[in-house]
Simulated scan of single mutants.
Amino acid sequence: MKAIQFSRYGGPDVLDIVEIDPPHPSPGEVRIRVRAAGVNPSDWKRREGQYRTFEEVTFPAGVGVEASGIVEEIGPGVSNTFVGDAVFGYGEATMAERAVLTHWVHKPDDLPFEIAGGLPVISETAWRSLDESGVKSGETLLVSGAAGGIGSAVLQLARIRGITVIGTASPQKHDYIRDLGAIPTTYEPGLADRVRQLAPDGVDAALDVAGSGIIPELIAMTGDPARVLSVADFSAEEYGAKFSRGPPKEPERVLADVARLYSKGLFRLRIEQSFPLERTAEALSISAAGRVTGKLIISP
């Protein structure tokens, strides 16, 4: 089968498309024929070696941590999932024709494979971040980097929870932000003044999903570092703010809930572009540029 691998840390040029034997699931796992795999910032950050201080990588290493597809092989101890089932969830080296999933749920018929393949990371991260931020119904949340995959999920889940959201994005994405139920603003200098005009009573919490070095400014706007959380800036804790990290918490429950929300028309995901496996390096480069609206997908 074809798969994307890298044998050293570096830029897009270290990625290779290789022919390898299909993986086999261990106990509690399943193998799928991949229909869609989501692109996440963690993919290119891991490839660059940004995680090497706290995560061991064995070369050659695969790329991708989420996917949707059809179950081909069942690992020992797996029940209620059968060969031929359509599923989506977390896995290993998912940018490949076949991949092993470690956490998954069944895919509803009305949820396209392309969208399902891009849901796990953003939905679980958004759900966890809202929980850990402590923001409640009736409060106001500022989201820095609101138009990307995680930001898009945060806006929708926060709206469902009754939270008012102000989201930063470039001007051309403001209609998209409004469409997801949030109040848009730009992220240029003067953010505090603009937020003050939009929320005269202040913001109760702030969430950084862009990792753009804005933590001190967010702390100044909330007045309390404990009400600022980042999923992208490793330095957040140096300022007294929170940094939310994996592994995923109760991923099956979250994915099942988000799938139900999708079926009810309460949650959606914009797929900006889909790439064949051979163009994975290009997709990761676009992700690294930081201007994606919604999600990028690899379709082997």
Rank of each mutant, 00 (worst) to 15 (best):
A220P: 03
E66D: 10
A232E: 12
S133W: 01
V231Y: 02
A37E: 09
R161Q: 13
D179V: 00
P171F: 09
I163M: 02
V228L: 07
I160Y: 15
D204S: 13
G265M: 13
D208E: 10
I177G: 00
E250L: 10
E188H: 15
A67P: 05
F88P: 03
A169W: 08
A205M: 10
F54M: 09
I219F: 15
T164Q: 01
V105A: 06
E252H: 06
P276A: 01
D13K: 08
I160G: 14
Y90C: 06
R47T: 14
D193A: 15
S285A: 13
E66Y: 03
E250Q: 14
L119M: 15
A96S: 12
F82P: 00
S285I: 04
A116T: 01
Q197W: 00
G62T: 04
A236K: 03
R260L: 14
F275G: 00
E252L: 07
G11H: 08
F82L: 11
V292W: 06
L229M: 10
F267C: 05
P41Q: 08
A116R: 02
V154A: 07
G211Q: 09
S287V: 01
H24L: 07
G167P: 01
E237H: 05
D13Y: 00
V105C: 08
E66H: 04
V14Q: 05
L180P: 04
L255V: 07
W104Q: 05
S79N: 11
G181K: 01
K249I: 12
V105Q: 05
Q50G: 14
E29F: 06
G265D: 15
T164D: 02
I219K: 08
N80P: 01
W104I: 01
V143G: 08
D193M: 13
Q50T: 11
A99N: 08
D193L: 12
I214A: 14
A153I: 03
V39E: 02
S129V: 09
R270Y: 03
M1W: 02
E238T: 14
V57N: 05
E114D: 14
G145Y: 11
V14W: 02
V231P: 04
G84W: 12
S123C: 11
P27E: 03
G202L: 10
D85C: 11
I74G: 08
H103Q: 12
R227L: 04
V34A: 01
H106V: 02
T280M: 00
H24E: 14
A232I: 09
G91K: 09
G213M: 14
A289L: 07
N40R: 03
I219R: 07
G240M: 03
A220W: 09
R268C: 07
R33Y: 11
D179W: 09
G138M: 10
Y239T: 05
G49H: 13
A241Y: 08
M1L: 06
S68E: 03
L180K: 04
S133F: 00
V258K: 05
L130I: 11
R161C: 07
E238G: 12
V292L: 04
E282R: 00
E29G: 06
T280H: 03
T185K: 03
G10C: 12
F6N: 01
S152N: 10
I70N: 04
A116M: 08
V143I: 14
G290K: 11
I298D: 02
E139Q: 13
P225S: 09
A153S: 12
E66I: 00
A99Q: 05
G148K: 09
K2A: 00
F59W: 07
S144H: 15
E217R: 06
V14R: 02
I160V: 13
S144V: 14
W104H: 04
G240Y: 08
E29Y: 07
F234Y: 13
